[in-house]
Nucleic acid binder design. Structure first.
Lengths: 138, 138
DNA sequence: TCCGATTCGCTAGCATGCTAATGATCCTAG
DNA sequence: CTAGGATCATTAGCATGCTAGCGAATCGGA
């Protein structure tokens, strides 16, 4: 596998599977993490605000929010000042899952990179950051 | 973005978008690349064989093959010796797209990693390979 | 030879993301 | 104060992957 894109495809798939597995044990699916991340930082955001923060689209957040509502992780409430807006609020269950989900992800990270030295890890982080910056520009 | 998993999620999404864009200009979608890769190496493989080679599932290959058949990239033909098997064959169009698709992917790779030194690139490749090996074991 | 287990491709149905189109609401210029 | 443009969530429909379950075909042991 000499091709870098192929390596990324492979890593992404494996990491995503492992992440979904690790988070699933805490009642959260991998796709819901971006919404949780945003709401953990600031509760009561609207779908469009979350999408803008995380570089996704509004329909993605809306659909994810619907699944999370069915799963009892968030509730929708209309904005009292602007009837176009819908605000998403975490349920107690979603709030309390925060630490365990974070720890599960951190543990997975440690496991996946266990064969890398601290220096290699830092290089990896740096390389990924550079690629992100490069792709976001264009 | 201190979290490595978050970096990977971001890179994957950006790279996947850019790849689909680059390949789309040659009439091939990003999800079809794994099937093409397998058939470019050996034409006439069955869905199950492709899935085993590439670490995906048979339904994924079957569905992708259906879309590729509609797009005129492959044809299905029954195996003469084993009626359970269906063999996938590239059309001339898919065969001739090989070089341009490869070059498009290579160009994207060069573009995405333009701000990395040769040494950084080698480290990145090595780190990704290590992570893949680590995750495949478990 | 024949019957149960295995091996196929395929379909159904789900999660995750996307774009395009819709309808409600808000705001601003005149 | 009103009309038209902007902004918002939502729905519809697609691509990509997955698991579960189906029916057809094959194989292997009695």
């Amino acid at each position: 596998m000499a091709e870098l894109l192929g390596l990324f495809t492979r890593v992404s798939k494996l990491l995503r599977e492992a992440t979904d597995d690790a988070m699933g044990r805490h009642g959260v699916r991998v796709g819901q993490h971006i919404v949780l991340t945003a709401l953990w930082e600031q509760d009561g955001l609207a779908p469009g605000e979350i999408a803008r923060r995380l570089g996704t689209t509004t329909p993605t957040i809306v659909n994810t929010a619907t699944r999370m509502e069915e799963a009892g992780l968030v509730v929708r409430r209309p904005d009292p000042a602007d009837a176009r807006l819908v605000r998403l609020y975490l349920t107690p269950r979603a709030r309390s899952a925060r630490d365990s989900v974070r720890e599960a992800r951190a543990a997975l990270e440690r496991h996946a990179t266990a064969t890398l030295t601290a220096e290699e890890l830092e290089h990896l982080r740096s390389a990924l950051t550079k690629i992100i910056a490069r792709l976001q520009d264009s």
